[in-house]
Computed example of a mutant assay.
Amino acid sequence: MSSYPPPPRPRRLERSSSDRVIGGVCAGVANYANLDPTLVRVLTAVLTVVTGGTPVLLYLVALFLMPEDRRVGPPPAPTGYPTPPPAPGSWPHPPAGTDPIWGREGAPWEQPHAPEPPAPPAAPFSPPAPAEPEAPVAPVTSVEPAEPADPADPADPADRR
């Protein structure tokens, strides 16, 4: 005769006693729906802004109607395949001297650097000699303005017509 495992307990909608911000309603709804409690809280806040406060009233009703969970300790661990701890010397920290990318010496910024040789002494400053002699520049002469033309003068070229 074969025995089957017992059926799982039915899920109950309960307020969370370990993951609560105000009353544990959002965390309880998230646990019931298998969602992240922060996502449920953000959705509640967005719906409150969009609908004008309806989720606040529903939250208060649920605060008084939903029973509090009876768990005393921390929330249960997530189910699924357990991940084994990494083997010693495996990625992301290989043993020293066996870096698969940079080799035995390690990354360039991790390698010891030889001291830089001192700079040669600087020569005293002397201005450079001109390559070509400068061409002489003619002095600027000032030009006196001409006297304004007399409108009655017959020698004025503008009046000759």
Rank of each mutant, 00 (worst) to 15 (best):
P128D: 10
Q111E: 02
V140T: 15
P120S: 07
R160L: 14
M66S: 02
P94H: 14
A96R: 13
P133N: 06
A152I: 02
P8V: 09
D36C: 08
L43Y: 03
G97N: 07
A149Q: 08
A87Y: 11
P92E: 06
D19H: 15
E116M: 07
A30C: 04
S90E: 15
A123S: 11
P67D: 10
P100M: 00
M1W: 11
P128C: 02
I22A: 12
S2N: 10
P130Q: 11
D36I: 00
P8H: 07
P121C: 03
R161H: 10
G23C: 09
S18T: 15
P74A: 14
A123C: 03
P117F: 04
P86N: 10
T38V: 13
P37V: 00
W91S: 12
V49I: 15
P121I: 01
S126Y: 13
V143P: 09
P136C: 01
P117T: 06
P76I: 00
Q111Y: 03
R104G: 07
P82T: 11
M66G: 03
G73N: 11
P124S: 08
T38G: 12
E144Y: 07
H93V: 12
P124L: 10
I101S: 04
Y59M: 04
V49S: 05
P55S: 02
T44Q: 04
P133G: 05
P115L: 11
R160Y: 15
R161Y: 09
A138T: 09
P121S: 08
F64W: 12
V21R: 05
P55K: 00
P84W: 08
P37Q: 02
P5R: 04
E105R: 14
V25I: 09
P124Y: 05
S17Y: 04
T38Q: 10
P86H: 09
G23I: 00
T98S: 11
A138V: 07
P8A: 13
P95I: 03
T98G: 00
A135M: 11
R9D: 12
P120C: 02
T98W: 02
P148T: 09
E144W: 07
H93M: 10
H93T: 14
P115R: 12
P5L: 08
I22S: 11
L13M: 12
W102H: 15
V25W: 00
N31Q: 12
S17C: 14
S3L: 10
A135Y: 10
A27Y: 01
Y4M: 13
A33C: 13
P133D: 14
S142W: 09
E134I: 04
T98K: 06
T79G: 15
A149V: 09
P84E: 12
S18G: 14
P121R: 10
V42F: 10
A155V: 01
N31M: 03
A155D: 15
A135P: 15
E134L: 09
G23E: 14
A87V: 15
L39F: 13
A146N: 05
R71Q: 12
P37I: 00
A123K: 07
A119P: 09
V143D: 13
R160K: 11
P7C: 02
P139C: 01
V46W: 03
W109R: 04
A119W: 04
V50L: 12
P10M: 04
E110C: 06
G80F: 06
F64S: 07
R12Y: 06
R161C: 02
P151H: 01
E116G: 04
G89V: 05
V42S: 05
V61E: 00
P139Y: 05
P128W: 05
R41T: 14
T98D: 02
V137E: 11
P151Q: 01
G24P: 01
V21C: 10
T38R: 13
